[in-house]
């Protein structure tokens, strides 16, 4: 059915061109041969020819009036631009700026995300080591049973904690137990802000404390170079991690002074930070989209 219609259309096209004398000599000869053999095709051609003749014989319609131009008709009054259209260039500029900022921020975030992730890892590791050392110290002091230790470790659910626990010899921590909680508060307070932050803090002075463990897997930190602080202060870092019930009742009341303890909810700092760093990008992208829509609308306004 479709093929038949298509063939008829093709034939009509040839017949139409034949009427206009627009066929090549070869095509014309072939068509004339077909016409000679096919009366239906001849009738088709004749009907088409008469149709064209009827249209060509249509009488011209005279203009009903004169179309003379007056100066007022051809004057091109300067059309005042609508307020939206006047804003269009500024909106275009704002869209471009917003888009560029969005891209720059996106690239910066992607780049820093790649750099920050490995650097962020030591923070929980350092805490884990501190916790572990306290746990072991507590175990050595019999105030904490081996069954209690996992609960302490759970306070900082880091994967590095068990490894650090294994790497740190318990005998190095054991002697300092009596000092737990006595000197620590004052020492901690004397430390500069950020000194607790990681390997560059307490361990930066050459003595590689528990907090410096991530800097190297070997446990030489505790047994190595002399510390600027007395070694007895070492476990004081772990007090912060030790729950109150793990401290022996025989300890002085000062031992119960607990330093600000990172809660388990506070651990995914890097996640929170990365989420907050993506917020501006999303906001800027939305702003760019809104500006682009407004720009298109402003340019199309007349």
């Amino acid at each position: 059915m479709w093929g038949k219609h298509r063939a008829q259309d093709k034939m009509d096209e040839r017949l139409s061109a034949y009427i206009d004398g627009a066929l090549s000599p070869r095509e014309r000869a072939r068509l004339e041969k077909q016409l000679a053999e096919d009366p239906a095709l001849r009738a088709r051609l004749e009907a088409l020819r008469r149709t064209v003749a009827l249209v060509r014989e249509l009488p011209p319609v005279p203009a009903p009036r004169n179309f003379l131009l007056s100066p007022g008709m051809v004057a091109q009054p300067a059309r005042p631009l609508s307020p939206a259209r006047r804003l269009a260039p500024a909106l275009t500029f704002a869209t471009a700026i917003s888009g560029i900022l969005c891209v720059v921020l996106l690239v910066a975030n992607l780049t820093t995300a790649g750099l920050v992730e490995p650097m962020a890892a030591p923070v929980p590791l350092a805490r884990g080591v501190e916790t572990t050392s306290v746990a072991e110290v507590a175990m050595a002091d019999t105030a904490v049973t081996p069954e209690d230790t996992p609960s302490l470790l759970r306070a900082f659910p880091t994967e590095e904690a068990p490894a650090a626990s294994l790497a740190m010899p318990s005998e190095s921590a054991t002697p300092e137990v009596p000092w737990l909680g006595i000197e620590t508060p004052s020492i901690i307070e004397e430390l500069p802000p950020g000194a607790m932050g990681g390997a560059g803090g307490i361990g930066g002075g050459g003595a590689n404390w528990g907090g410096a463990a991530p800097a190297g897997p070997e446990p030489r930190g505790i047994e190595g170079a002399p510390s600027p602080w007395p070694e007895t202060e070492t476990p004081s870092l772990g007090i912060a991690a030790a729950p109150e019930e793990t401290i022996p009742a025989t300890l002085p009341p000062e031992a119960k002074v607990v330093l600000p303890t990172p809660t388990p909810e506070a651990v995914p700092i890097s996640e929170t930070a990365s989420l907050s760093s993506w917020l501006p990008v999303g906001g800027l992208a939305l702003l760019t989209l809104a500006l682009a829509v407004m720009t298109v609308w402003a340019w199309r306004a007349r």
């Binding site: 319609v61 203009a63 009903p64 131009l69």
Partner: peptide
């Protein structure tokens, strides 16, 4: 404009016929 209007008078019938 007068010169153009002479052209208008000369061709307006043809132009109108086509439009019609």
């Amino acid at each position: 404009l007068d010169a153009f209007n002479e052209l208008v008078l000369a061709y307006q019938d043809r132009v109108y016929n086509l439009a019609y």
